[in-house]
Design a protein around this nucleic acid. Structure first.
Length: 394
DNA sequence: CGTTTAGACGTTATCGTCTAAACGGTGCTATAAT
């Protein structure tokens, strides 16, 4: 298929006239059975790079997606364009999921979204052998690196599947967030003859500021005075759940319209706040990093961090959600540089705790080993017995 | 770092008080216990 032919089809199904050069380069490689890592900034149109070829293949395209919310949005969008897309996840009943699997085997589905954890499901594994696979896509592929090591190990196990695939089966990994280190990590995982296409990640409309303080109170005072002067609606990230409440209460006290958000809230409340954010119900939403991927609001005008995130990757990911419309956007980072008795800056400690916590210490390993030696235990029982979290056991 | 939790203590039945240790942030899935 030539680019010209492809763009005619593009117009018919997706309503666009032309591909960007790097989009076509990606699609052309995939149509020729190659493996591609595509790194382009938010809003570039990465999804089209797999959605278009998926509609051209005879068989099914399977997409690994990190969040149910992302699956839902994408399936909805595709169905509106008349493309048969479905997802399998825990929000559907077992019967519904089984039906989707059957449809996939019968060739009734073009694009199927799953979470990487599904790879550990026996029914699913057996079913994939009977599907006519056309392409594998790993969406938000930085999660392989950022979550795969400790938080969601299933992301690193995607590679086990990829290695079993025929060499000529196209594989695409996409992300907006990749340092060279993350890029190399993903390249090594996917291996094969992989082509990396790295676009321009610069966000021209961002104004970045770092504000150094000597105490927590300074942050609160600055914010009380300045937030209402910032344009539009924004997000304020704190380091802990408790701080989302503290900051939100403070804002309430000084007359700033806000609400707090974190993963400790129940699903309905979270959805309500996400919707309220879209409708500009508050000046800002005070949140942990739970709010982020999957928030598709074009006009987030400012993002403030009261604590430094665990790494530059985390930071780029979190500020990346702002200013998709290209308008001027304020990005502000607070840093309390006051040193403690050991000469360690205050705001260095929390991110360090997260980084160190990524790998459980030796005593925790020992705890798990001892418990398993004594008796055979399931994962849940093991969590109870050792008083450790799931991520520290698996 | 600040905050929360676990458990030792003492004195002797009911817990307050203290100290040491652990924790802090992201979500999928399947299953046990209600």
């Amino acid at each position: 298929m030539t680019r010209n032919e492809a763009e005619k089809k593009l117009k018919r199904t997706f309503g666009f006239d032309k591909f960007y050069d790097e989009q076509w380069e990606t699609i052309d490689l995939l149509l020729h059975g190659k493996r591609v890592l595509l790194i382009e900034k938010t809003g570039y149109g990465k999804s089209l790079c797999f959605q278009f070829p998926a509609t051209q293949f005879d068989g099914i395209t399977i997409i690994f997606s990190p969040l149910i919310a992302l699956m839902r949005d994408q399936v909805h969008g595709l169905n509106e364009k008349g493309i048969v897309a479905k997802h399998i996840n825990s929000e559907q009943t077992h019967e519904e999921n089984s039906q989707v699997i059957q449809d996939a085997i019968d060739g009734k589905i073009k694009i199927l979204y799953i979470a990487p954890e599904r790879q550990e499901n026996q029914e699913w594994i057996e079913a994939t052998r009977r599907m006519d696979l056309s392409m594998i896509v790993i969406d938000e592929a930085h999660t392989i690196s950022v979550w795969g090591h400790d938080f969601r190990p299933a992301f690193r196990r995607i590679i086990n599947l990829v290695q079993l695939l025929p060499k000529e089966l196209p594989v695409l990994a996409t992300t907006a967030t990749a340092t060279k280190r993350v890029q190399t990590d993903i390249e090594q995982q996917i291996s094969g003859n992989l082509t990396t296409i790295r676009g321009n990640l610069l966000r021209e409309n961002f104004n970045l500021f770092v504000i150094e303080t000597k105490s927590e109170d300074e942050k609160l005072l600055w914010l009380a005075e300045k937030i209402n002067k910032l344009p539009g609606t924004g997000l304020l990230y704190t380091g802990t759940r408790v701080n989302t409440e503290i900051y939100a209460r403070w804002f309430d006290f000084v007359g700033i319209n806000s609400t707090d958000y974190n993963a400790g809230l129940d699903g309905d409340t979270r959805k309500e706040i996400e919707k309220g954010l879209m409708d500009n119900n508050w000046k800002c939403v005070v949140s942990t990093n739970a709010l982020g991927m999957g928030i598709d609001k074009p006009d987030i005008r400012f993002i403030i961090h009261t604590q430094i995130p665990a790494s530059p990757i985390h930071y780029y990911q979190e500020i990346g959600r702002a200013g998709r419309d290209g308008q001027r956007t304020f990005i502000i980072l607070f840093y309390n540089s006051k040193k403690d008795d050991n000469g360690v800056p205050e705001d260095y400690k929390l991110p360090k705790a997260f980084v160190d916590g990524g790998r459980p210490n030796i005593r925790k390993y020992q705890k798990v080993i001892d418990a398993v030696k004594q008796e055979q235990l399931g994962e849940k029982q093991l969590m109870k017995k050792t008083n450790l979290k799931q991520t520290q056991i698996v």
